[in-house]
Design a protein around this nucleic acid. Structure first.
Lengths: 252, 252
DNA sequence: CGTAAAGTTGAATTCTTTCAAACACGGTGG
DNA sequence: CCACCGTGTTTGAAAGAATTCAACTTTACG
């Protein structure tokens, strides 16, 4: 078996992707807002398809995402790639078990992104001065881990259709938690190859499964827009449960 | 089947890993050990095959494992099961994104276990009184997440033989990090069905793959004892890299 | 308007599962 | 000490899911 997807060196910034402003990010808890504020090193805007950092690279910065989508992934020696999770507006990114060691995964923007940057020194100093933030970070990390476990179940114990359904509902719900007013259509900046590398499938099989979901009138995915046509049936297929993501909370 | 580029010389057992000298295996500072001590509610011993807690159940206790193996898993509506990770002596268990909500996974002992218990109130109070412990927990959680991501790659992008090889080396190395003196044989309390539910395979296929690994003289698994016969080739098969687990550290 | 990237589709192959049955081993009771 | 039992392991054969290979179509964008 073994699916790969060779990653070519894409250097071309792509404002191509019709994904625009994503949902507002949620403001930080007021109590901590002021504190965190003073350690920011300002905002950056990064075009689509750029690396924030790469596996094996030393990189101590921590980010908060204001707008845009980012994907985190690991690569295999055989050229394969496994996407670990998508980072959405409001999410926190760059914290790992050991900040002075090389990153254990890569982060690449899917769309143009606006980020709030905490250089490592600032970040560490902030934690030293405000130790109660440590627990915040622990909660956040635990929540990210929970999502990862959901992915594990999805890839390890479901068939292609169920996996697709899960991914769609997951992203839909995550956006919805941040902005309850969103419609049934959400931006979807990933390619089918990205989906494949998220779900442990091949591009070809994703395409076929997608067709089948479309023909059954469950979802529609085209032009980088995903429309949920039959939420109930999708959630039925994949056993998706809202409580899965319910502990979503605003971040730093 | 997949052919990957050969990785050659990193196959030396773990204490040879160059990163280790950089103090990654750091015990909790003594000052903190004393602090933690006073919030313990004592030790318990639990027989094999018992639940520590079950998915959906409210359960605020936090544990540190002194001895024994525990498995964490989630169950699916169709009866399936996905094992998320094995908890070994020295590990920390029970912390999740929201302690007042039902557990999002189950924990079941594989062997008799001796645990150190922190009732939730103690735990929370400990964090309140010693906020710097929050960051400790964040590191620990991040490390657990890293292992989970490794699992994701394993299940999502490798074939059966590669998956088995990874699991064996992972457990072997984790034990070895705690006790560098262990031999090539380690206790292996799981059944083949457990392995299957860890790797996203079926029991039958695990059995066949195991036979093939045995016939090639790579490992031997019987009577709940695993023997690594050819570490280099195993690590070659699965692309196992010591740095994968290098951030191992003793916990609370 | 042309090119590169992304999406589609068919056919053959391979990996993994399913179903079904037999075998092995540790523990229990007679 | 041996028969019996249940759990866990092993194996074969057939079916099914997903991959591979290869070509073609469409879309996005300079």
């Amino acid at each position: 078996m073994t699916n790969r997807s060779k990653k070519s060196e894409q250097t071309v910034p792509c404002h191509a992707c019709p994904v625009r402003k994503l949902n507002r990010f949620q403001p930080l808890p007021e109590s901590q807002q002021a504190v965190v504020q003073q350690y920011r090193a300002g905002q950056t805007t990064i075009p689509a398809k750029q690396y924030l950092y790469r596996e094996g690279e030393l990189h101590g910065n921590i980010y908060t995402v204001f707008s845009g989508w980012i994907m985190l992934y690991k690569t295999l020696s055989n050229g394969g790639r496994q996407i670990l999770r998508y980072v959405l507006p409001g999410d926190f990114i760059g914290f790992q078990a050991d900040l002075q060691f090389p990153m254990n995964h890569s982060a690449q923007t899917l769309t143009d992104c606006t980020l709030c940057v905490f250089p490592r020194p600032n970040f560490l100093q902030m934690l030293q001065t405000n130790p109660e933030l440590g627990l915040q970070i622990a909660w956040i990390t635990a929540r990210d881990m929970t999502l990862g476990q959901e992915y594990l179940v999805n890839i390890g114990r479901k068939n292609a259709k169920e996996r697709l359904a899960f991914l769609f509902l997951e992203l839909y719900q995550r956006l919805r938690l941040r902005n309850p007013k969103i419609t049934d259509s959400i931006p979807f900046p990933m390619t089918q190859e990205d989906i494949a590398d998220t779900l442990g499938l091949t591009l070809v099989h994703v395409n076929r499964t997608l067709r089948s979901l479309r023909e059954e009138g469950l979802v529609n995915l085209s032009h980088h827009t995903l429309t949920i046509l039959d939420y109930d049936q999708l959630s039925d297929i994949t056993g998706f449960n809202n409580s899965t993501l319910a502990t979503d909370q605003p971040l730093l």
